[in-house]
Design a protein around this nucleic acid. Structure first.
Lengths: 246, 246
DNA sequence: CGGGGGTTTGAGTCCGTTCAAAATACGTGG
DNA sequence: CCACGTATTTTGAACGGACTCAAACCCCCG
């Protein structure tokens, strides 16, 4: 699994400038001054990945950080027994790898494109330089790190106390933010970027159980699945799954 | 549960100087220059807590960070349904609360003394000032934050894939670092700082299950429990629980 | 039209939970 | 120091959610 490429895999692409990136003000780069943004732009490279393609593997030596420019990337963690969980989904605007940068470890997860994806790669040493130059960036990154840690704890709490069905409801509510769209008649529609196996990994369960839970949600009229399309006729029903009215 | 005391509860104590603290070089404060350490010393206050006493509650407004000077503190997180997990145990040298400082939230956990405990309290604004003055401190804190986040993910992976017995073995191995002592005949002895209920919370299970798991470990000769005393005749047996030889 | 992957369904099992009761440890006041 | 009441821990029996293994199904693509 060791790998010390200094350049990412994935097909290279022409490089649009960072200042034109529509996601910049949502990312940690919002802390940068204009001239620092062009510094960023110069040092990064763009790369394209097809669904399923691996960006880097858990255990690879750390090379730099990645920004999602387009698409979705999954972060998976595997233990010595081969158990695996899907730690997180990263969407346009998210940055991958700064945790490992600071922890000074190899990559602690495997990153894999879920949909056709474009990433910006920023080498570790250039990131370090930028960090030295901009305390504001450091602060911003630290803030995000702190939030991530908090979210990881929440996930732990959920997964160790809530049944799969409720966790599924949580997941749908989270995905709705990114992949949902309201329909005319008030029903909500979302197109999942995930396979059932992915969902199972994310919920800490098996595909069979996911299928059964979906079935049970259908029976109760909370959702209507067909493949990766989900219809949610009444959002309140889904919210009740998460927080049953007392 | 709201609470906006600016001073911690817990009986005040005379204040030993930070430069004399034997834990300083293990903590993030190792990044500070001598004159900054005395700054630290001036601004902090000491407080004593009896077992079970709450240092702060989840949801209290953030007031500052705490260093464990002596004893053990548990960090618990509770969800809206009243489920609770023990997120972490903090020992002498550990710092509590910097995650919430950066995430700019209220306290995200409840901190409670597990044994008789002395804490140093450092108000948020003074920490901020110190942080502004010392980039090295910022870097060090960020590093620890990144490591914490990684550990939270590992915990998640373990708790969602490994059976309680293996998680128990993990816990014992972790506690041995702090609470273990080798005996003449090579057996290892540890005195747990935890009740069965605490262990259950930490493993994400129930006290009854903990009792049964302990029983099963006894039967297999891996451990010998009597109350909070544990004897481990052969460490290898415990290691095999975690990583069964292939 | 015939694979082949992912998905669903089914049946049986196991681990951990729940509820309840018994046993043990613990602290307090006599 | 002992007796008592309370809290914690252990044990037991029954239940249940999720897992495993296996087969059927479906859909997409060649």
């Amino acid at each position: 699994m060791k790998n010390s490429r200094s350049k990412p895999v994935g097909q290279s692409k022409p490089t649009p400038a960072c200042f034109a990136c529509q996601w910049r003000d949502r990312s940690q780069w919002c802390a940068l001054e204009p001239e620092e943004v062009s510094e960023l732009s110069e040092k990064k490279s763009n790369h394209f990945y097809t669904p399923g393609q691996v960006v880097f593997n858990q255990g690879d030596t750390f090379s730099g950080i990645f920004c999602v420019s387009e698409g979705t990337v999954s972060l998976r963690r595997t233990d010595s027994r081969g158990n695996t969980i899907l730690v997180r989904l990263c969407h346009a605007g998210d940055t991958i790898g700064y945790r490992d940068f600071f922890a000074e470890t190899e990559f602690s997860v495997t990153a894999q494109a879920v949909s056709p994806t474009t990433l910006c790669f920023f080498p570790a040493k250039d990131f370090q330089a930028l960090l030295n130059a901009s305390p504001a960036l450091g602060m911003e990154v630290t803030r995000r790190l702190a939030q991530d840690a908090g979210q990881a704890e929440e996930a732990l709490l959920r997964s160790s106390t809530l049944p799969v069905r409720v966790r599924m409801a949580h997941l749908l509510l989270a995905l709705k933010e990114r992949y949902g769209q309201g329909l005319d008649d008030g029903t909500l529609r979302l197109v999942l970027p995930l396979s059932r196996q992915d969902i199972a990994d994310l919920l800490g369960t098996r595909p069979e159980t996911v299928a059964r839970v979906i079935h049970s949600l259908e029976i109760d009229g909370v959702t209507r699945f067909s493949g990766r399309n989900v219809l949610i006729p009444d959002l309140d029903l889904l919210l009740d799954e998460v927080d049953p009215e007392e």
